[in-house]
Nucleic acid binder design. Structure first.
Length: 877
DNA sequence: GAACGCACGC
DNA sequence: GACGTACGTGCGTTCC
C-alpha cells in the first residue's frame, strides 16, 4: 500500500481554530474553541487522507536559531492570548488519546520539523501532506509533497502543488523563499527590501530566477530606484531569505517508523471528549457506520478460476462485475462472477480483463448475458478495452420498471423482494460509513458469486412479470438500448474550459468580497451571510425587519421571503445578489472544477436511469441537468462547456411544450389539440380562455398567470403551490385552476379519470406503459390522498414526455450511425438533447435532429423542436 | 456524518 | 377541518 504521511503544524492550526470560532467554553469554564476546531480539522484529515503516518509538530519555546541571525525575528507580534495558551495542554492530551505522535524541538520551529521530515519521507517514496495556516510552508511543495493551507475557518483548505504555485505566482516552490527575501513578511517581522512587494518580487524572479542571481546582476535591473534599493539592502535581502527558509536539516530525532498511525482507541477518545463536553462529536464517533456483519448464509459451491476456459463462457450466462465505489468511471473492479449451465465461477479482475478469451466472449453479440446495471458494467469494462455486447437482460432496469418506488441500493434489495435471502447487502458485507472495509479474497468471491446466482435465479421471473404487465417492450426496446446510449454519453463526457471557469471564479470572488463588506457595513457588524441562523438574527432582530414564515429552526430567509422585504432595507438586495453569486461560485464553478478530469478536462456525469418516479433521468457528479440558464450571470457558466474537438460545435435541440402537447394528446382535449395544430402561443391561448378575452386583450400579467397555471398542470402542483408561485391567495389560485379546467373540458375529464383509474387499478401508466403505483390514493389523510391524486394526474404527462425523449435518443443513435455521422449525443436535460458535432455536419443535423425528435412517437398533436448551435453550450441558445 | 436551509434546473 | 405540498442534486452551516 502506498505510504502517506500527514504533517500538521500544530501551533498554526490551533491559532487558526482559535480565531475562526467564537470563544466557546465548556461546563468547567475551560475555553474550548481552539481544541474543538483542532479536533474537527483532525477528524476531517483522518477521514479524507487516511494517513499511514502522522505527526503534529509544535514550536518549542520563544527563541530559535533564527533569532541568532536576527534578534528582531517575529518581533512586534501580539502575545498569545491566555485564552488560547490554556488550551494547548488539552490539545496535547487529545493527540495522545488519538494515538497521534507529537513533537517539538528546542531552538526550532514547527516548520523546520515539518520541512525536515517531509524531505526524508519524500526521499523514501511517501506521499506527504502538510497542513498549516502559514503560506510560507508552500516552499515545501514538490511532486510528492502537497501543502494545504487553511483558507477561511479551519476545514476549508487551499491545496498547493508545484503546478498550483506556478499557476498562482508563476514561480517554482523553491523560489518562494527568494520572494520572501525580497518582499519580506510583516507577520514574522522579516524586513526584505523596502519598496519591493509581491508583484515586483515575482517579476524579478521570473527574470533572474534566484535572489542570488538577481543580486549578482543588479545592473541589469530596469528602474534606477529599484536598482538603488536592491544594492542598498542587498545584505538584508539575503538575511531575509535565510529567515524565511525552512530548514530541511533540523536535528530531528524522530524516525518515520515511529510515527506510523494505526487508528485510535474509541474508548480513550470518548473519555476525553466527555471531559471536554464535546457531545456532538461524541455522538458522531458512535454511530458513524456499522461494522461488517457476520451472518450465516447457506453455503454455495463455486470455483475460483485461475484461468479462463471455454466452458465458463457460454451463451445465456449471468455476469456480475463488482465495482466497489459507486462512481464507476474511475473505480477499480473488485472481481467478476459468471454463472451458467456449466457452473459458477469467480475471476479476479486481472484474470478476466486480460484474457483474450473473455474479451472475445464479452464482445460476442450472439452470446447473451444477464447483468445487473448494464450501464455501469459497460462503462467500467470499456475502460479496460472490453466492449460488452449481447446484454439481454438488466435486472436493475427490469426491477425499476416493475416498481419504480422500490429503493434499489444494490442487488440484494431486488433479491429480498423476491424472497431470495441467501445474500448480504453491500452495507452488511462491506460495512457502512467509516467502518467500510474490503474483506478477504475468498469472502469477496463468495459475495460476488452470490450476486451472479441472483441474476440467474431472478431474471426469468422478472421477465415474465414485465410481459404480464405489457411492459416488456418498454424494457427491451426502450430502456435496455437506452442504457447503452447513456453509457456512450457518460463515457464520452463533455469538455470543460477550465481556464474560463477559473477566470469566472476570480471575478466572482472579487464581487463577493465587495458584496460581503457592503452587507457587513449595512448590518453594522460582521457575520456569516451563508448562515441562515445568523442572517435571521441580523435581519429580524437587529434591523427589525418583519419576519415572514418560520422554519423548524427559526426565521426563514429564503429568496421569496427576502423579495418581499426588498423595499424595506437596502441590505436585502445585496444579500440576494450575494446568494446568487455565492451559489454560482460554490456549486457551479468550484463544484464543477472538483470533478473535471485532470488529464482530459472533461466531466463525466452519471445518469441515474432507475430513480425518478416519473421515468425521467437524473444526473450526478456533476449534475449537468441543472446548469443555470434563467439569469444571465449564471447562464455564462455554459460558456465553459465546449466541444472536445477542434472545429466542432455544441448543438442543442429542445422540445417546445412537450408536456402540454402530451396532455392534449392523452386528454384528447379538442381545444388544446387545435391550439397546437395551429401552433399558437399556448400561454396566450390559455390566458384568452381563462380570462375570456381576445388575443389582443391579453395583458402580460394575464399571460404570466396563465403560464404559471400551465406550469402547475405540468408539475402537478396544488392551489397552494400555485398561490406561492404567483404570490396570490390560495382561493384565487383555486379559482384559476377551476377556470382552466372549464376552459379545457377534455383536460378536466382526463384529470378525473386519471384519479379514478389510479384508485381502481392502483397505478397509472404512460403512453409507453411505464407504471407508477399510488397506494396512498386511498388514504384517509386528506394531504396524503391529495398528493397521490395530483401525482395520478401528473405522472402520465411527465412520464410520457420522458418516454418520448428516450425514444428519440434511441432513434437518434440509430440515425447518426446509419448516416455515418461523427456527431455525438452528450447530454439529455429532460426535454432537450445536447450534441457535439463537426462543423460540416451542422447542416445535416439541422435536418435530422428535429426530424427524429418530432417523429419519435405519433401523437394527435404535432411535436415541435427548436434547435441552435455555437462554439459553447452558452451559444447554443 | 446527518439534518437543515437554501437554490439551481425542468 | 385536518396539513403541507412537483422532482431531483448539491452546497454551506451547525454541531460546543
Amino acid at each position: 500500500m502506498e505510504k502517506k504521511l500527514v504533517l500538521i503544524d500544530g501551533n498554526s492550526i490551533a491559532y487558526r481554530a482559535f480565531f475562526a470560532l467564537p470563544l466557546l467554553n465548556n461546563d468547567k469554564g475551560v475555553h474550548t474553541n481552539a481544541i474543538y476546531g483542532f479536533t474537527t480539522m483532525l477528524l476531517k484529515i483522518l477521514e479524507e487522507e487516511k494517513p499511514t503516518h502522522l505527526l503534529v509538530a509544535f514550536d518549542a519555546g520563544k527563541t530559535t536559531f533564527r533569532h541568532a541571525t536576527f534578534t528582531e525575528y517575529k518581533g512586534g507580534r501580539q502575545k498569545t492570548p491566555p485564552e488560547l495558551s490554556e488550551q494547548f495542554p488539552f490539545i496535547r492530551d487529545l493527540l495522545d488519546a488519538f494515538g497521534i505522535s507529537r513533537y517539538e524541538l528546542e531552538n526550532y520551529e514547527a516548520d523546520d520539523i515539518i520541512g525536515t521530515l517531509s524531505k526524508v519521507a519524500d526521499e523514501e517514496g511517501f506521499q506527504v501532506k502538510v497542513i498549516s495556516g502559514d503560506k510560507d510552508m508552500t516552499q515545501l511543495a514538490s511532486e510528492n509533497v502537497t501543502v494545504c493551507i487553511t483558507r477561511k475557518g479551519i476545514t476549508d483548505m487551499e491545496i498547493y502543488t508545484p503546478e498550483h504555485i506556478l499557476e498562482k505566482y508563476g514561480l517554482h516552490p523553491n523560489q518562494i523563499i527568494d520572494m520572501k527575501g525580497l518582499m519580506g513578511d510583516q507577520s514574522d517581522n522579516i524586513p526584505g527590501v523596502p519598496g519591493v512587494g509581491e508583484k515586483t518580487a515575482i517579476k524579478l524572479l521570473k527574470e533572474f530566477e534566484t535572489l542570488e542571481g538577481l543580486l549578482s546582476s543588479i545592473d541589469q535591473v530596469s528602474g534606477a530606484k529599484l536598482k538603488d534599493k536592491l544594492s542598498e539592502f542587498k545584505d538584508q535581502a539575503i538575511m531575509s531569505k535565510q529567515l524565511a527558509t525552512i530548514t530541511r536539516e533540523a536535528p530531528v530525532e524522530v524516525v518515520l517508523p515511529a510515527i506510523e498511525y494505526s487508528g485510535y482507541s474509541y474508548e480513550k477518545v470518548k473519555s476525553i471528549f466527555k471531559e471536554l463536553g464535546f457531545n456532538s462529536l461524541l455522538e458522531k464517533m458512535e454511530p458513524s457506520g456499522t461494522e461488517r456483519q457476520e451472518v450465516e448464509l447457506e453455503e454455495i459451491q463455486f470455483e475460483i478460476a485461475k484461468e479462463i476456459t471455454e466452458e465458463m463462457l457460454t451463451d445465456n450466462a449471468s455476469l456480475y462485475v463488482e465495482i466497489l465505489e459507486d462512481n464507476y468511471h474511475l473505480a477499480p473492479i473488485l472481481g467478476l462472477a459468471i454463472v451458467n449451465a456449466n457452473g459458477k465461477y469467480f475471476f479476479e479482475t486481472d484474470i478476466a480483463v486480460h484474457s483474450p478469451l473473455f474479451k472475445e466472449w464479452a464482445e460476442d453479440e450472439s452470446k447473451s448475458k444477464i447483468v445487473y446495471d448494464a450501464k455501469g458494467t459497460e462503462v467500467s469494462l470499456r475502460k479496460r478495452d472490453i466492449h460488452l455486447k449481447g446484454i439481454q437482460f438488466d435486472l436493475l432496469v427490469a426491477s425499476y420498471l416493475l416498481n419504480p418506488s422500490e429503493s434499489l441500493d444494490d442487488i440484494s434489495s431486488v433479491a429480498r423482494r423476491y424472497n431470495e435471502v441467501n445474500i448480504q447487502s453491500n452495507d452488511e458485507f462491506y460495512g457502512k460509513g467509516a467502518k467500510r472495509s474490503v474483506p478477504g479474497k475468498e469472502e469477496i468471491a463468495d459475495h460476488i458469486v452470490r450476486k451472479a446466482i441472483i441474476l440467474e435465479k431472478l431474471s426469468g421471473k422478472l421477465e415474465d412479470e414485465l410481459k404480464e404487465n405489457q411492459q416488456y417492450e418498454l424494457f427491451h426496446d426502450l430502456e435496455m438500448p437506452l442504457s447503452l446510449i447513456l453509457a456512450d454519453m457518460e463515457s464520452a463526457g463533455i469538455k470543460v474550459d477550465v481556464g474560463r471557469l477559473k477566470k469566472m471564479n476570480e471575478e466572482l470572488a472579487a464581487k463577493l468580497i465587495k458584496l460581503e463588506s457592503k452587507i457587513h457595513q449595512l448590518a453594522g457588524e460582521h457575520f456569516n451571510i451563508n448562515s441562515p441562523k445568523q442572517l435571521g438574527v441580523i435581519l429580524f432582530e437587529k434591523l427589525g425587519l418583519s419576519s415572514g414564515k418560520k422554519t423548524k429552526t427559526g426565521y426563514s430567509t429564503s429568496a421569496d421571503v427576502l423579495e418581499k422585504l426588498a423595499d424595506d432595507h437596502e441590505i436585502i438586495r445585496e444579500i440576494l445578489d450575494y446568494r446568487q453569486l455565492g451559489k454560482l461560485q460554490s456549486t457551479y464553478i468550484e463544484g464543477l472544477l472538483k470533478v473535471v478530469h485532470p488529464n482530459t478536462d472533461k466531466v463525466h456525469t452519471r445518469f441515474n436511469q432507475v430513480l425518478a418516479q416519473t421515468g425521467r433521468l437524473s444526473s450526478i457528479d456533476p449534475n449537468l441537468q441543472n446548469i443555470p440558464i434563467r439569469l444571465e450571470e449564471g447562464r455564462k457558466i455554459r460558456q465553459a462547456f465546449i466541444p472536445s474537438e477542434e472545429d466542432w460545435v455544441i448543438f442543442a435541440a429542445d422540445y417546445s411544450q412537450i408536456e402540454l402537447r402530451v396532455l392534449a394528446h392523452i386528454a384528447k382535449d379538442e381545444k388544446l389539440i387545435q391550439a397546437f395544430k395551429d401552433d399558437l402561443d399556448i400561454h396566450t391561448k390559455t390566458a384568452m380562455e381563462v380570462f375570456h378575452v381576445s388575443a389582443d386583450d391579453v395583458t402580460s400579467n394575464m399571460r404570466r398567470h396563465a403560464k404559471a397555471v400551465n406550469f402547475g398542470i405540468v408539475y402537478g402542483i396544488s392551489d397552494f403551490g400555485l398561490s406561492q408561485s404567483l404570490n396570490i391567495t390560495r382561493r384565487e389560485a383555486g379559482l384559476f385552476i377551476e377556470r382552466y379546467l372549464e376552459s379545457y373540458p377534455g383536460v378536466k375529464h382526463y384529470m378525473e379519470d386519471s384519479v379514478k383509474v389510479a384508485k381502481q387499478q392502483g397505478f397509472v401508466t404512460t403512453i409507453l406503459q411505464r407504471r407508477r403505483y399510488l397506494p396512498e390514493i386511498t388514504s384517509r389523510n386528506f394531504n396524503i390522498r391529495s398528493f397521490a391524486e395530483r401525482t395520478a394526474m401528473n405522472t402520465p404527462i411527465q412520464g410520457s414526455a420522458a418516454d418520448i425523449i428516450k425514444k428519440a435518443m434511441i432513434d437518434m443513435a440509430d440515425r447518426l450511425q446509419s448516416e455515418k455521422l461523427q456527431s455525438r449525443l452528450l447530454l439529455q436535460v429532460h426535454d432537450e438533447l445536447i450534441f457535439e458535432a463537426p462543423k460540416d455536419e451542422i447542416e445535416k443535423l439541422k435536418e435530422i435532429v428535429p426530424d427524429v425528435m418530432e417523429n419519435a412517437v405519433e401523437l394527435s398533436v404535432p411535436l415541435k423542436v427548436d434547435y441552435s448551435y455555437g462554439p459553447t453550450w452558452f451559444d447554443a441558445k
